[in-house]
Computed example of a mutant assay.
Amino acid sequence: MSISEAEAVVMDVLWRQAPRSAEDILAELGPTQGWQEGTVKSLLNRLLKKKAVKAERDGRRYLYAPRLTREQYVSQESKGLIDRLFDGRIAPLVAHFSEQRKLSRRDVADLRKLLEELDDEQS
């Protein structure tokens, strides 16, 4: 399932608190994103078609909640990124980020710990 950047903004609202109405989402995102009601409803309809969210009738309105978890989304997006940009390999990804941004001592320690754990699992 491919989720656009704008759809991800709506999903983020729902991951933080659900269920929410389209009006609730508009109240939160309208001022910062410059979105109108039609934009929010269009994004929600796209997310419904993709089965990323579900809707439940509540009187005259619908309440939306995520079906796709944040963890599923992050996993899907990160796998796509690694596949597209680094031929499915992790080492070039880490090398790229270490060249672009200095890794902190904590980052290096965390990476070492992770590699040790992975090594122990494979032994």
Rank of each mutant, 00 (worst) to 15 (best):
S42A: 12
S78M: 15
V74Y: 05
I90V: 15
R61Q: 07
L44V: 03
M1Y: 02
R70T: 02
W15A: 04
V13R: 07
S104F: 00
L26W: 03
D87T: 09
K54V: 05
L111W: 09
R20T: 03
K113L: 06
L114R: 13
K49F: 13
E5W: 13
L47W: 03
F97D: 01
E56M: 13
I25G: 00
L63R: 05
V94A: 09
P66I: 02
E99D: 07
I90P: 02
S98H: 11
A52T: 06
E116I: 14
V108K: 10
S104Q: 02
V10D: 04
E117V: 06
D12P: 05
R61D: 04
V40W: 01
E77M: 12
D120H: 14
D110R: 15
V53K: 02
L14Y: 03
Q36N: 12
E121M: 13
A27V: 01
R57E: 08
E77T: 13
A8S: 11
A6I: 06
R57V: 09
G30C: 06
E28P: 04
D12L: 03
D83K: 13
R101Y: 10
E77G: 09
R105P: 04
R16F: 03
A55P: 00
K50H: 02
R89I: 00
D87C: 05
A8Q: 09
G80R: 12
L14T: 01
M1T: 14
K50I: 08
